[in-house]
Design a protein around this nucleic acid. Structure first.
Lengths: 329, 329
DNA sequence: TAATCAAATGTTAGCGCTACCATTACTTTT
DNA sequence: AAAAGTAATGGTAGCGCTAACATTTGATTA
């Protein structure tokens, strides 16, 4: 059996609560006593029981983080940003993956709240009704990341509709007229859809059509390559492809290289995210750079500030984006 | 205040333990009673308190997973494999990131064990002495992943030394004679070092030198590109580069494309991991494919089997690897 | 119908810790 | 030297749940 606080207390000849203080507020214990207790801790090989502590104090120093996917580098970077900030302040991350499924998200939120997390970081602004209700009722800090809009708690992200507009404007300005938007399973990725809406808006305003090609597998290189083939076969006079993300776009670009299709002369290619790969392919990919790690860090900082008692009001933070023009458009 | 089990019990006119049973072993409760309790749960908006439950039952259904990095896709895929298996069986993942720091690893292990996890999944076989002691003392299942060797618990991984040998043999066989091994911060990445050892062994056996170039930043495309420049400048008659991973190798390959350096005529390039990108660059990257997600899944399955009472003995599982020959060598 | 037994439900006692208040030890002040 | 104050430590109760055993209910059998 693991030794408990009172085993340590017995060993050190003090009461359990004094040992607890050494762990939680060492400055309240006289240095001599503290040293004695610390060596007792080592001696009996005490490992703190976080469950009991969190139950008694009703606070766990656990952050529940819910993302839609772990296959997508973007969320990894966000998690990385969260981690780096939270770990520094002594918080642990409980990680959940919804696989873009709102039902699963609801289930996860339910379970995670049962851990009395110090805060909840969740991706996106769209949740099932049940989930929405649970979130609204919960008293701890909530941060909704990635998108901007009508949030329950604090909100860190960027305006995806505007990002879509921005890229569409760029393409139109460059003189492209037969532009297709290519996504992978767009109905599951609301942010890709928002970008499409912005894109379509701009194209229609310019009197252009805004066709959409939705691939039925989740987006990686392979899907991008296949999408390029499909576009060339079915819409042969397309002059530019606006991809929903850099994975797809890079896949298409690398495929074009292999096939001897010239970019942008035969067809222009644009992406979204600003992944490193886009800057290393030839030609460099035109894309929209989103500060992904910053989203995680901002979210974490906001939560930490709140938890340490600073009275910040719930509000939202636009991390913005940058159009990075490569030679692919 | 959140409603508790006894609030639900009062509402449903039963005792708390019956409600507990509905949650943990519904088949033990008569359907009529169960239905009544379930609607009471909905009515009062009950959210289960995992802390209290885990404390009382001394089991948390949390899996502590410790990886050295989240910037490396490889670990993401492993985590993904773990997630998909564990989540299906109702386990949550508590995620820790050591940043390749053994002290930090020890600290994380300490903290995580305080959560009474159902199991601990940890990367690698090398731990600090203190950590080693803590792990040995702990009673729950431990899985050490990625490497194979002298493990404390169950062991899922591959033989990195052999992988290094395999690639070196391939290069020698292809006729390359001035082969350099390029890594990024090799002293932090023990597995990259193991591969180098295998590589060196083969080269020396063939009467060749086995120089090592260690880049001082962690490996991404950029580092690979820079490494290629350095090799060409400082070791101009090198005919092949064996990179410690595909990120570096792809970075170098894409850089070569940009610079008009011909691969493999001017210089051959090989990697390790079998990341998708390697199969989409031109020429395709020669690499060693490791079944990353399988490692996570295997680890998870083993743990689950153990937890559900199957009496499997601690042992190790070699997931193997495959040499994938592209046109880059 | 009583005896028997399994299924369903309840009672009690803690899991290991911390909040809250009480007490004791040690300073400082006048 | 007594009073007043502060710092350090302790006692008690309870966080919300479940394990272990106890009891009740209802079905089955002789």
């Amino acid at each position: 059996m693991q030794p408990t606080l009172s085993d340590v207390a017995k060993e050190a000849g003090v009461s359990a609560i004094t040992v607890s203080r050494v762990l939680n507020a060492p400055e309240q214990v006289r240095p001599a006593t503290r040293a004695r207790i610390e060596s007792a801790i080592d001696k009996v090989g005490y490992v703190r029981n976080m469950l009991a502590g969190s139950l008694a104090s009703a606070s766990s120093r656990v952050i529940a983080a819910i993302v839609p996917s772990l296959s997508n580098v973007v969320f990894i970077e966000v998690i990385n940003g969260l981690q780096s900030e939270f770990e520094r302040h002594g918080y642990q991350i409980l990680l959940g993956n919804t696989d873009y499924d709102l039902e699963r998200e609801c289930q996860l939120v339910r379970t995670f709240l049962g851990w009395s997390p110090s805060a909840l970081v969740i991706t996106g602004l769209r949740h099932s009704d049940a989930c929405q209700r649970i979130l609204q009722q919960w008293e701890g800090p909530i941060v909704e990341i990635m998108e901007l809009g009508d949030a329950i708690g604090f909100n860190v992200g960027l305006d995806h509709t505007e990002a879509g507009r921005c890229m569409a404007r760029h393409l139109v300005q460059r003189g492209y007229r037969r532009i297709i938007y290519v996504a992978a399973q767009i109905e599951r990725d609301y942010r890709a859809e928002l970008r499409y809406r912005g894109h379509r808006e701009v194209l229609q305003a310019a009197g252009l059509e805004a066709p959409l090609l939705d691939m039925d597998q989740l987006g990686q290189f392979e899907t991008g390559a296949r999408a390029l083939d499909q576009v060339l076969a079915r819409h042969p006079n397309t002059d530019a492809i606006h991809f929903a993300n850099d994975d797809l776009a890079s896949g298409a670009l690398l495929h074009a290289n292999r096939q001897g299709i010239r970019v942008p002369e035969d067809i222009a290619i644009a992406g979204f995210n600003g992944l490193p790969i886009g800057q290393h392919v030839t030609p460099r990919l035109t894309t929209i750079v989103s500060p992904r790690e910053v989203i995680g860090q901002m979210a974490a900082r906001e939560v930490i500030a709140r938890l340490e008692g600073e009275q910040t009001l719930y509000s939202s933070h636009d991390v913005g984006f940058t159009l990075s023009v490569g030679e692919s458009t």
